[in-house]
């Protein structure tokens, strides 16, 4: 089966060690995480995590099932098969001087990125987009010299009314049913 990237989101209780529980599970089961993002969500006391993982369908099914075994994990969705939006934010520090600064600014405009810091020898560029867009601008900026980059990791959401709290409550009880019928 083909290795492909899957985007998985998980609603988790905002309790101590929940991040360790999740990352420990990925480590001990040998699952590869490409990116992980976590933060507050629309429900008080809960957080939502987004993972990008690599693997075939069997591995991704195991990942979602294993995540569901954690008591603090409330809902897990592999949203890659549905229509979804994914975004990531990156800050990139690039070498810049009076001769090439305008060229960089043009590039930033094309990518609808922002310049958030200007120094005599460098610029900090803030860019938001899916993974491909961030890779692209980073590749182009490399020709000027990227001295530092930091990324938030991908966050993602299904399009339309498919996801979110309402569905969480509706599917709360038989959360393993989808496994039984798959």
């Amino acid at each position: 089966m083909a290795q492909m990237k899957h985007t998985i989101t998980a609603l988790v209780s905002d309790k101590p060690a929940v991040l360790s529980r999740v990352s420990s599970l990925f480590r001990r089961r040998g699952f590869n995480i490409t990116s992980l993002a976590v933060g507050n969500c629309e429900i008080p006391g809960m957080s939502r995590m987004a993972f990008v993982v690599e693997g075939d369908d069997g591995i991704v099914e195991q990942i979602t099932k294993q995540l569901r075994t954690l008591i603090d994990v409330i809902k897990v969705s592999d949203i890659s098969k549905a229509d979804f939006v994914s975004r990531e934010l990156a800050l990139i520090r690039v070498r810049a001087n009076s001769t090439n600064r305008s060229e960089i600014i043009q590039l930033v405009d094309i990518f609808r990125a922002n310049i958030v810091d200007v120094a005599p020898e460098s610029l900090i560029i803030e860019v938001t987009g899916d993974e491909d867009k961030i890779e692209s601008i980073n590749d182009l900026l490399k020709t000027f010299g990227v001295t530092e980059m930091i990324r938030t990791g991908t966050v993602a959401m299904m399009r339309g009314m498919a996801g979110g709290t309402e569905e969480t409550q509706a599917t709360n009880l038989p959360r393993s049913r989808s496994d039984a019928t798959s």
């Binding site: 988790v12 209780s13 954690l70 008591i71 603090d72 994990v73 409330i74 809902k75 709360n172 009880l173 038989p174 959360r175 393993s176 049913r177 039984a180 019928t181």
Partner: peptide, 15 residues
């Protein structure tokens, strides 16, 4: 009160 822990007891009828 464990919203993330609801063991399934009965088998799915179609299964």
């Amino acid at each position: 009160d464990l919203p993330g822990y609801k063991p399934v007891l009965d088998g799915h009828p179609s299964q």
